[in-house]
Design a protein around this nucleic acid. Sequence first.
DNA 1: AATGAAATCTAGTCCAC
DNA 2: GTGGACTAGATTTCATT
Lengths: 152, 152
Amino acid sequence: MDEIDAAIVAHLQAHARQTNRDLAQAVGVAPSTCLERVRLLRDRGIITGFHAEVDLGALNRGVQALLHVQVRPLSRTVIEGFKAYAMGLPEVLSVFVVAGGDDFLVHVGVPGVDSLHAFLMDKFSGRREIAGFRSSVIYQHTRKAVIEPLDP
Amino acid sequence: MDEIDAAIVAHLQAHARQTNRDLAQAVGVAPSTCLERVRLLRDRGIITGFHAEVDLGALNRGVQALLHVQVRPLSRTVIEGFKAYAMGLPEVLSVFVVAGGDDFLVHVGVPGVDSLHAFLMDKFSGRREIAGFRSSVIYQHTRKAVIEPLDP
DNA sequence: AATGAAATCTAGTCCAC
DNA sequence: GTGGACTAGATTTCATT
């Protein structure tokens, strides 16, 4: 992974639909070389996919929250089970399994605060493995478009 | 946003580089119609962009953590200032501004636990607006590839 | 608004360097 | 590993329904 690969990766993170020609010109190689490098980056698992980003409000998910969840007992079965359960819920955007005070952080997107409350009551309360949870409404979420490699 | 648009949005979230022909066939319209709908979805701000997804390990970011940060005083200046500062740090992947016990959750990706410690010491300790912070190492992070619209 | 055909441009392969 | 030519196929425009 030299600096040309790094430049390709950076460009594709920002604009995945850039034509191969433009990409090649932007990073300073011939189109055929660029095409081959992109193919290798995919084969090597460095680029894992290309995805459209969607406005959450347009999907009727104007309210986001992070749910801090503690489960018990802390066994592999319970942890994997809860993770699979959470990922299966349509409201859930992503699931973090974390160390520290909480066991999970569940990122959800829902139509409104009322739906958030309903979601917690209907989908979380009453599950025996959940020892406790706490919800934090998200005022803003800013994700970096381009993630660059770090120096070792 | 009818069901054809919803299907287009779902397909492009999963495979942003699908050819327009295949996409059109998958959602059951003519290629020209499909192209026009995709253009409109972009113009209306429903699709906000196309991005390549990259393996964090390949970018020398094998260790991720969530940093729970409290800042004081809770003024607009301090909050916007800290957010801008955090987003400017190369280790940071995304920043959540949240309600509840913490003010920020900062998602970072670093080469190792040692770099995480160094990051906290060098970039967080000593900043006067930071009233306290706590870090949670991320064991797993699973994001949903396709986010579907929710019913109202 | 959706379609089908035609013109333009691109991807992907091959070969020479 | 790189760059240029070639072919098949895709994108995109436009007249038509």
